[in-house]
Design a protein around this nucleic acid. Structure first.
Lengths: 156, 156
DNA sequence: TTAACCTGTATTTTTTAAAATTACACCATC
DNA sequence: GATGGTGTAATTTTAAAAAATACAGGTTAA
């Protein structure tokens, strides 16, 4: 089985929309080029972000917008938009109910995984996207690429 | 997301070895029947648990043993045995370095995911396998199957 | 001492969820 | 009305996990 990196891609898209606001680099094709995926996948992730009211879009117009400021959006908002209430750790759903272990392990583990999920989600709730943007421009500055305008915009 | 069923199966196997100790139900075939997987997979997981010194095994003998008591083994021990230091949440490794976002998002997210991993691992370290065994026999008791001996052994 | 049963591990095949592709109705802008 | 875009359904491709196959060699008991 392949594992999903949609969560990471969704964060990528959110930051991209913030940083490239008011430019003509906001089509799903341009975004897909940054994420290195295909435009349909970008639109699918954005459809999900829209449903969760994290972004606004308009059919036919390449101009998505965040619905609130990056200081008001957390990693948890994005996680729940993409993953719903799916836990990071999953039980094995097909254990043998004829065995005392197989019959009960699922509920036992589910309970533990729910608890672990709570702790990780409460940490996610503490991280806002403006922190990520700031970290991103600091990383960019250290590499000295040609984005002084963006660096200056967020580095204060 | 990393759908790690192996982690759940590894915990299953650990609890199984504890509960069925001193019986002749400890071959990889019997364990596989409880987990509902194949014996080779069980032996592969057990090879990993052995490498981490969580269990002892002997070639040719169907008699695996835990190396320490279940009160001395945590979920983190099992997690690290199976997953090493792989984070639960993964970055997208193929973002476009020609874009300011694509170039820096990986390191920015990696840092956040490392932090989330730390919090979830510190929670895992608090959960010992004896808690799981106890939860398991409580669940079994509520369902009233035919395992009074096992229930009595751990329910005190 | 040999037959039955087991482990450990390498290799190959199958499975399956994710991602990519294809397709297309319809919107926006020039 | 041509060009370029969104939204979404349907199909195909993909790659990682799991299963299956194979086999060398350990263990036990008749």
């Amino acid at each position: 089985m392949k594992y999903s990196i949609q969560f990471s891609d969704a964060i990528h898209i959110m930051l991209y929309i913030e940083i490239y606001q008011n430019t003509d680099y906001l089509s799903s094709t341009k975004i897909a080029d940054s994420v290195q995926t295909n435009p349909v996948n970008v639109r699918k992730i954005m459809a999900q972000l829209k449903k969760s009211q994290l972004i606004q879009t308009q059919t036919g117009k390449a101009n998505p917008k965040l619905t609130r400021s990056i200081s008001q959006i957390t990693l948890l908002d994005v996680y729940q938009s993409i993953e719903g209430n799916t836990n990071l750790i999953q039980v094995d759903p097909k254990t043998n109910v004829k065995c005392v272990v197989g019959a009960n392990i699922q509920s036992v583990l589910e309970k533990q995984y729910d608890k672990l999920q709570e702790t990780v989600e409460s940490e996610m709730a503490k991280v806002t996207l403006d922190t990520l943007v700031k970290d991103l421009v600091i990383a960019e500055k250290q590499q000295r690429l040609d984005n002084d305008d963006i660096i200056q915009r967020y580095l204060k």
